[in-house]
């Protein structure tokens, strides 16, 4: 699809925001059009990075799981960590990467809760690593119009 999808979304957003919305007489319709334009701006931003950010995050979570295997002794959790280490397949559609991300983050929540209960330097280091990755996950998802 040429011109690129993000260019077309940007064009639609600008048209809606600056050409069409100001001509709407009804105030509610006008602000709805403006909000829709901002949604298109956010979609523009996400378009190109959507697959990459999921791919990067899935790899970062697996790296944490590998580290966790040196800390976690609980058999059921260890088994889930090991099962999560291998990428599922070569499907790089966003929907497939998202499914994988959801599964990994579900295990990450369980790992995080477990590590919080463990004592020792290795557990604290892993806990810090999980929080650092969670912060990084918000950087990957950040959109420019976000308030923080």
């Amino acid at each position: 699809m040429k011109p690129d999808v993000d260019r077309v979304l940007q064009l639609l957003s600008e048209t809606l925001m600056f050409d069409l919305a100001p001509k709407l007489q009804d105030g509610y319709a006008q602000s709805t059009a403006q909000i829709t334009a901002m949604l298109l701006t956010a979609a523009t931003e996400e378009w190109d990075r959507g697959a990459q950010r999921r791919f990067d995050e899935n790899a970062a979570i697996r790296a944490l799981f590998r580290e966790a295997l040196g800390v976690v002794g609980k058999p059921a959790l260890r088994s889930d960590l090991e099962a999560s280490l291998k990428p599922s397949d070569a499907n790089i559609r966003i929907s497939a990467l998202e499914r994988e991300n959801n599964e990994l983050r579900r295990v990450l929540i369980r790992l995080h809760a477990h590590v919080e209960e463990l004592e020792g330097e290795a557990a604290r280091s892993l806990e810090d690593g999980i929080w650092a990755e969670l912060l990084e996950s918000t950087v990957r998802r950040k959109i420019s119009i976000a308030p923080f």
Binding site: E98, N101, N102, R105, R106, L108, I109, H112, A113, W131, L134, S137, T138
Partner: peptide
């Protein structure tokens, strides 16, 4: 989707 930050 899972919410690891809110859950933490």
């Amino acid at each position: 989707c899972p919410q690891p930050i809110a859950r933490g």
